[in-house]
Amino acid sequence: MDSVITLRGAVSVLGRFPALAGVDLDVDRSEVLLVSGPNGAGKSTLLRLCAGLANLAQGEATILGFPLPRRRREVRRRVGYLGHANGLYPELTVAENVRFWSRSVGAPTGDVAAALDRVEVASRLHDLAVAHLSAGQRRRAALACLVVRRPEIWLLDEPHTGLDAAARDLLDALVREAVAGGATALVASHEHERSSSLATREVQLVGGVVTWSRKPNSDERPNEHPDERPNTHPVDTGQADGAPIAVGGGAPHVP
């Protein structure tokens, strides 16, 4: 299998507290990995580490073949991270925010409208300042920022929070579409039922270490067959400028 995330004894420290205390993890291309665990287990830090945002105090982390922290810039250009905050500029319009993200990876301008259409942001909202949007609409705008970058790895931290039923379904569809296009997704969530229907594998973090790994909703005992993972293959979905946008990692904008 083609491993896109490899962590070996990864330790990440917040202040003096080890949020990750020696994580070993391999994630293959086209996997949807559900990261579960109680509050403070290190789920968000794990995702931030994979995005090149959290520090790596000890151990090794290789994302898409790039070692962290040395090649973090290359990693960041290839991953999409949706955390608890949306990372939007409130004074800018929805379209301007998406355009900023799109230009940061050199995406064609036509992709902005396509991304907004894909996440079903009503066209009347495109030119509205983000400050005037509801929480759910902001989350959709943040998703559009993610989609327009065509990340190879989607890092989603509690992605369903603040979304209505339709938006939750849309988010799940986006993740499935991205994975079908060759992307990989890590989803940290407390909404186990919802997220496990999306996942191909689940790991549990407790106290900053992975305690078990298994197929979601399976009866197998955790860790019984750690290497038995779904076998999916990337599909090339190259897109033309302005065409309906593909959310997969098949045609990333970065060279």
Binding site: G87, Y89, P90, F100, W101
Partner: peptide, 10 residues
């Protein structure tokens, strides 16, 4: 809205 993280992630 975590703009600093966004700038680094860009």
């Amino acid at each position: 809205d975590a703009g600093r993280d966004a700038l680094r992630l860009s």
